[in-house]
Structure formats: C-alpha cells, structure tokens
Simulated scan of single mutants.
Amino acid sequence: MSVLLLADHDKGELSPSTARLVAAVSAFGPIDVMVVADNPDAIAANAAALAGVSKVLTVTAQNTSESVTNALLSAAGRYQYVIASAASVGKDVVPRLAAALDIQPVTDIIEIHGPSRFTRPIYAGNALETVVDPQPKHLLTFRASAFRPAASDNAAPVEKLDISIASAARFLAAHRTDSDTPDLATAQIVIGGGVSVGSAEGFRLIEKLGKTLGAAVGATRAAVDAGYAPNDWQIGQTGKIIAPDLYIAIGISGALQHLAGIQGAKTIFAINTDPEAPLVKIADVALIGDLFEILPQLTAELEKLGLNR
C-alpha cells in the first residue's frame, strides 16, 4: 500500500494539520507528501521532518484549486490512497479530483478501523456512521483535529516534480485577519464566545483570557453574523470543526450547528446565565453567572498563577 498526502500550508509555512494527518494514516503504508506552492522549499523541509514521511514531492505552481488538483492527478495513479484534510483546500480540491479519477471519496473521517473502514459524522454531527470503502483506490479526507500530530524527528528526501501544471485560474490577492493566536482547527485549548457577549468590545475579554491561556479564540455563527468576531473565528457546521483538550464556551446557548463543530472536545467548560442551555447541560463543568463579572476575575486569578503567556 502507498499513500499520497496533500500538504496544507499558509503564508509559506506548513499547517499543523499536516502532522496530524501523517500520524493518522501512518498504518496505511509509506507516505509521500505533496507540496504545491509558488515557493515550496521551506514548506517541504518542514514536511520532510515529520515522522512517517517517506518522501516529499514538490510542485512549483500557484496554490489554486485547479493547480493543486492537476498536480495530484499527475501523481495519483501510483498510489492506493490519496488523502487531504477536510479543511477549505481539501473540500475544494477533492470533489474535483474525485470526478477526474471517477472515485467516490470518503470525507470528514474522524476514526480509522482498518485499511478500508472508517467512521464519519452525519446529520450535522448528530450521528456517526461507519463506512466500508471497497474501491481499489481510496480518496479520503480527514478531520485533522481528531488526531494527534506526528513527531518531528525525520529527514525524508525531497524530490522536485518537473511537471507542467495548466490552470485557467490565476491567484490575485489574499485578504486575511492577522492573528498571533494558535490555529483554531488544531489548538489544544479553544475559547468560544456567543452572541451574548454583546459586542466586539466584549470579545476583548475573551481575547485577553485566550492570551493568558495560550488559547485559540472562536465564535458562534450568530456572533460572527452580528459583527462581533471575524469570519475565520466561526466554529460549527458551517465554520471550523475543533477537537481541543479544553473548550471554554462563554455565553453560548448551544445551537445544533455549533454543537456539531465541538463534538470532539475532550472537556467542555461553560459560562452562562442559563442553567438550562443545551451546551451547559453537556458541559463537564459549568459556571452560572454574568460573563462580564466572571471573565475579569477568572483572567486575574489565572495571571496570579503565572499562566499569562
């Protein structure tokens, strides 16, 4: 068996999700990682350091969906498994690749039971299904947050693929929200705020607690729609799927779409005025009270313990 894994990267750096995918599929056989980028060398070097990687393949091309799909298509014939993360790039590229290869993909995998048996969520995360993929070639996407990352103690060779990637699309510009917080999809601690936070200024309290704990900061769709938080903070069925060791939910009632995005959280700590809120009921620990009174006190006590980072 052999594996071709598409590397996720951003701003010239390898995404943490790639290390998680490498660890997840290591039992499938030798793993070749493909990096498609304008300047792939630095990204490839980081990928080569991941334990379990046999080889890194680089393709110099713009990181558009069409270019990435064509790069994968040029190499896919040699592999039994073609794998990507179930994030924005994977969701864009894998359907294109599936059509070109005439393969039914298995998406959003959160657990592996064998070479062709997987578990994935359905019905907005309200149920789990175990599927068997009988196809000779497997096209899979994984929720990286559901797996632990691979170690960085390797020195795999890097091979440049000299292939011509035709693409009608051209990258023009990227518009992003700058942040110094951990990546939301792979962070070990996540703090989420709901529409009850009341304003963008209210989210400053959540950001301060996040910096104290070294946590990523997220928000519900309602809070994002209200303009309290940027789009890339959105957690849930239509946002980012998270599986942190600790999720602190502040002023969040717990709509089904949000619960679908946090079902992988190991421990949930809720702060809410409503003891009957759905998220409070499933929380491991809950503080019932006014978030504007609790957050400053909680942050101050944590700073006293020397947790401010």
Rank of each mutant, 00 (worst) to 15 (best):
L4T: 01
L21K: 01
D162M: 07
P230F: 10
S65Q: 10
L205T: 07
P278F: 11
T273P: 08
Q263D: 11
Q237T: 04
A200W: 01
G29Q: 01
H138I: 04
Y79F: 15
R309K: 15
A151W: 09
I191W: 05
A243I: 07
V36D: 02
F203V: 04
V59E: 00
E303Y: 04
N46Y: 06
Q135M: 11
P134R: 12
G192I: 05
I83V: 15
A156N: 07
A19H: 02
P230G: 11
A255I: 10
S74M: 03
P30A: 15
H113N: 13
I31Q: 02
V68P: 04
Y81L: 00
D133P: 04
L291S: 03
L209Y: 07
G306W: 04
L291R: 02
S67L: 02
L97D: 01
R20V: 12
M1L: 02
S116R: 12
I31D: 01
P275G: 05
D232R: 09
Y79M: 06
A200C: 06
T60K: 14
T141R: 02
L172W: 10
A23N: 15
D290Y: 10
G12A: 07
D225Q: 12
M1R: 01
A223D: 03
R96N: 04
A200G: 08
V131M: 07
A19C: 14
V59I: 12
S179G: 06
L21P: 00
S145W: 02
Q257I: 03
V36A: 05
E111W: 06
L139G: 00
V106K: 01
E207W: 10
T273H: 04
L139N: 00
G239K: 01
A226P: 08
E111I: 07
R148K: 15
K281T: 01
A24I: 00
D290M: 11
A44R: 05
S152D: 13
A27Y: 03
A243R: 05
G114A: 10
E129I: 14
E293Y: 07
E293S: 13
S2L: 06
D284W: 11
D274P: 13
A286E: 00
L295R: 03
P275K: 14
N126R: 11
A200P: 12
I288N: 13
I191T: 08
N46D: 15
I271E: 02
V224N: 10
T186M: 14
I235R: 06
A86F: 06
G306R: 11
T107W: 05
V56I: 06
L139Y: 02
